Amino acid sequence: MTGGDAPLPIRLVSRNAGSGTREVFQRRVLGENEPVHSSLDCEHRDDPRAKVTRCELDSTEQVLEAVARIPGAVGYGELRASGTVKGLHRVAIGGRDADVDELGTSDHPYREIEYAYTWGEPPAGSLAASFLTYLTRGAGQDVVRVHGHLPCATPKGLRVCGEE
């Protein structure tokens, strides 16, 4: 996403190092690590040797709000979250726009599978077993879709999830 309309020097608004969103962006889109962190406020370069102004924030919401507020800023976040902040402009990657309705058929590179892990098979009737059933066979699939994701336990989802 980009913010503002003025063509200013690039300011990269990024997630912190422990972020799964950042890890997916680096691996699937950049193919390498992001440039070094060079700004505490996302607007001013604190390290004059840095080639770009880059800051790290703790949440997708903070990233999107900063990108919308700072002219010339670029950042990344989950598709669904980007639609809630005014002033953002989505950027195509490799000529492909991200589209929730095309998640099962698109080759858009910025996507990832979310996993649920358990310690062994949860006992039948347990809260963990019930939750996993809810996600894979129940109304939880609708909740997953509403939040802009594709459940793996669907025909389209199996194609995407089976690739990993």
Rank of each mutant, 00 (worst) to 15 (best):
E56H: 00
H89G: 11
L150V: 11
L79S: 10
G87H: 10
D46G: 12
L150I: 12
E121T: 14
V146Y: 07
V74E: 11
L79A: 15
G75Q: 13
D47R: 09
V67Q: 13
T2L: 04
Y134M: 08
S126T: 05
R96G: 02
D5E: 08
P9Q: 01
H89W: 07
V146H: 13
E163P: 00
D41I: 00
V100P: 02
T21A: 13
G18I: 03
S38P: 05
P109W: 03
Y134N: 01
H108M: 01
G31F: 02
G104D: 06
R159W: 03
G104A: 00
C55P: 06
L64Y: 08
H44S: 12
E32T: 14
L88P: 03
H108P: 01
I93F: 07
G77K: 06
L132D: 04
V100G: 05
S106E: 12
L103T: 01
E114H: 11
A92F: 06
L64H: 05
A129F: 09
E32M: 05
C161W: 00
C55T: 00
R145N: 07
G120Q: 01
K156E: 14
E65A: 13
V36W: 02
E56S: 09
V144M: 12
E121H: 08
S39A: 04
V91E: 09
G148N: 00
E78M: 09
S106V: 08
S130P: 00
L64W: 07
A66I: 05
E163Y: 07
T53P: 06
K86W: 09
A81S: 15
D142S: 15
L150N: 07
V36T: 03
G162P: 04
T84V: 09
G20W: 02
K156F: 12
P155N: 13
T118Q: 10
V67P: 08
P155V: 08
A81T: 09
R90M: 09
S82Q: 15
R96E: 15
D47H: 10
V144N: 01
T60N: 10
R159Y: 05
H149Y: 11
R145H: 11
D99Y: 02
H147I: 11
H89L: 06
G75W: 13
M1K: 01
G120F: 04
G138N: 12
L103K: 00
G120L: 00
G77A: 13
A153M: 10
T84W: 14
S106P: 02
Q26T: 11
G72M: 06
D101M: 02
H147T: 12
S130V: 03
T154H: 00
D41T: 03
G95L: 08
S14F: 06
R27C: 03
E112S: 12
P48R: 11
L57N: 02
E164A: 12
D41R: 05
E61W: 14
S106I: 10
S130Q: 07
A6S: 06
L158R: 15
V29W: 14
E43C: 09
A73W: 02
G87D: 14
E78D: 15
G140R: 10
I10T: 14
V85T: 12
D99A: 12
E163F: 05
